[in-house]
Design a protein around this nucleic acid. Sequence first.
DNA 1: AATTTAAATGATATAATATAACATAACTTT
DNA 2: AAAGTTATGTTATATTATATCATTTAAATT
Lengths: 152, 152
Amino acid sequence: MIHCEKHNHCISTAIKQGEEICNEKGLKFTAIRRKVLELVWETHKPAKAYDILEKLAKEDGAPVPPTVYRALDFLLQNGLVHRINSLNAFVGCSHPGLHNQCFFMICTHCEKVTECCTTELGKAIDITTKENSFTRESVSLEILGACQSCSA
Amino acid sequence: MIHCEKHNHCISTAIKQGEEICNEKGLKFTAIRRKVLELVWETHKPAKAYDILEKLAKEDGAPVPPTVYRALDFLLQNGLVHRINSLNAFVGCSHPGLHNQCFFMICTHCEKVTECCTTELGKAIDITTKENSFTRESVSLEILGACQSCSA
DNA sequence: AATTTAAATGATATAATATAACATAACTTT
DNA sequence: AAAGTTATGTTATATTATATCATTTAAATT
């Protein structure tokens, strides 16, 4: 399962949120940034930077890596996409602006990534860091396995 | 804080554990594998593959990347080291063979990595995956922040 | 012990991922 | 319009990792 039922809706929502967030913060949602966000959202699979680059090339002349990485950095910075460290890839954020502790379940069969943000898990992480007198700055939690469709 | 009080003890313990685990499993703890494990354990900082390669070069002629990556893969496979995905780096496992759900607190100031394996956190992860009908295969949890020494 | 097999290493090349550095353009503020 | 800032263009290169095939070493089998 790579696409959800009405995937166009996912994309248009993501773009709308991009616009809103940039407006709020007085940032520029430039054509490149918009296009890269669209490409990241093309599926619910993590998108590789160089795959985005290729897709971009089919439309926009001859883009180069920094173009894509800059756009991705901007989107990361502003919570519009997440980086999946275990895959060196990027996924759209399902609810940008709402929180900063997001966790990921990554299906190793269909590659779909599901974002989750259970407070329980967040609390457990807080407790553990406190017990170790560790000051948390950011968290990367990636659970690899089989999603419901793929384990059935 | 990069070294613990008696760091030679850490190293020798790690090597001893390497020997034991290989013996148990009928695997070969070859000279290269031993050396790479020693180099990973040189500090409690995550070690980069190419840094290991350089150190290896100072002792062993002219090693090449596959040599290091093969040894690291072997050590990963057998639970002797962990890969820190957010840093593309490797740390020794503090208690190999004892469990498979390890979490990491990574100090962004001194780079020390602390392994933790609180059952609470493991349980919270299990609950979350169950709620999502997700079958867990592996977990990567990396908490970035400041350790006690560095946040004081 | 010699033969066969499997595992590990050597060696070369290249793939995949990411950033540095400097030039130019576009947009903002004054 | 001038100055300053932000974004993009452009070239080069750094960093991380693997594919492939040859050779060696060790283990198992005869």
